[in-house]
Write a protein that binds this DNA or RNA. Structure first.
Lengths: 224, 224
DNA sequence: ACAAAAGTGTTGCGCTTACACCCATGG
DNA sequence: CCATGGGTGTAAGCGCAACACTTTTGT
């Protein structure tokens, strides 16, 4: 079966920037390419949009297929369509970003099969002198940079930060998420005031002990 | 000549939300459809993306073809791709918004030929009891609403407001642009303080008389 | 008892808001 | 001289940033 059109049509894909927090860093999920072009480079997960699914459905499906998670925070980022961005032909790619919390992240690690790997966005993993992140295929570096920029803005205005944490968390953990994403230290007292003032999290009657110090109170996010 | 693919491909278009200020209102350029579907409805101008041009080039080309202007403010908005949005088949549309200043706007009025017309976004033009804006084709109402939302945000953070005015303008004119877009009154003194503090406009040695009152000082925008 | 992270208030400053009168002009 | 929009300053309140010590636990 094949399809014929009077005019050439670009292929349309979705590409995913999937973030999580681990090892005290922001991580992005990348897939090692086994084929040309950009063989052996790392790339964002993505794939073609089916003819009868919405863009968001396509993104959610990719998320399901490639990393086995559903029902995560997903947001359209931007559409990249420069003619030369894929050497195989005209490909227009609608980029999404997704946030995966620390619990689900283990699921991803499990389905690790298909050459998918979490890469540090800011830290360099190994003490080599190389740049922070492996070279990315296509224009995926640009997409990633844009996603980081968007995440940084968004975290200041909204409550997306909570999407990166498990259901129960401490305020110190939440603060650390902000510090990692913004890449700058945050004042503890001001941070707590700001967060509590938003009225979006609930104090639980529960604490967590974690070493030789005072246990931390747990909170949870109040989804509307 | 025709093109054959193994899998069905969506068509890709750009749609334009072209804004200007006129008659003390925000106006959007709409085109009357002469063909089905949505015959005789109003629609956003738009068209297919050529196989060898970037999305932004396609948007700029449409702007040139449909309304005859070049070199205007143009920004990607969002990509709409629900399967049923065009009854003729799968069409993915990358929406852009453009801002046209009062000078260029006359050019548009001139090339008025092709059923293009400026429509008030907020006011109702005629004293009928109809809603503010004619019914739009496809999901164009949704696109327009999103564009208005984005413009409102953007005007508070950036200097896009200047794109809607001619090179020389008075502070009252600029203030009126803000009031029209935000649909709320703005305090004159605070507005002037804020705008001047941004250091983005230059006071000219020129004034403009306009009726039986003190002439207004002219300013111009300092593009970086 | 000590090390280590949790938790907690106050102050100063800058930005935003509210607000009212004189100025320059045309008719 | 009067109507019309142009132009100007000040005071109060609010949100944000800076800053240090006590509490609770494990070892």
């Amino acid at each position: 079966m094949s399809y014929t059109y009077d005019y050439p049509r670009p292929a349309v894909t979705v590409d995913l920037v999937i973030f999580t927090i681990a090892d005290d860093d922001l991580k992005v999920l990348l897939i090692r390419r086994r084929l040309e072009p950009y063989k052996d480079c790392w790339a964002l997960p993505g794939g073609f949009v089916d003819i009868d699914e919405s863009l968001e459905q396509a993104a959610a499906r990719e998320l399901q297929e490639e990393v086995g998670v559903t029902n995560v925070y997903l947001e359209q980022l931007y559409t990249f369509g420069a003619p030369g961005r894929d050497p195989r032909g005209r490909v227009i790619s609608v980029a999404y970003f997704a946030l995966i919390d620390a619990e689900r992240q283990r699921i991803v690690a499990a389905s690790d099969a298909a050459d998918a790997e979490w890469h540090s966005v800011f830290k360099q993993t190994k003490p080599t002198k190389q740049g922070k992140l492996a070279k990315l295929a296509f224009d995926h570096k640009q997409i990633l940079d844009y996603a980081v920029w968007r995440l940084r803005n968004k975290i200041e205005w909204t409550t997306v930060g909570y999407e990166l944490l498990p259901k129960k968390f401490t305020l110190s953990e939440l603060q650390r998420v902000y510090e990692i994403i913004l890449q700058k230290p945050v004042d503890k007292r001001n941070f707590r005031k700001k967060i509590l003032a938003q009225g979006q999290i609930v104090e639980l009657n529960e604490t967590r002990s974690d070493g030789a110090h005072r246990p931390a109170r747990l909170y949870s996010f109040r989804k509307k």
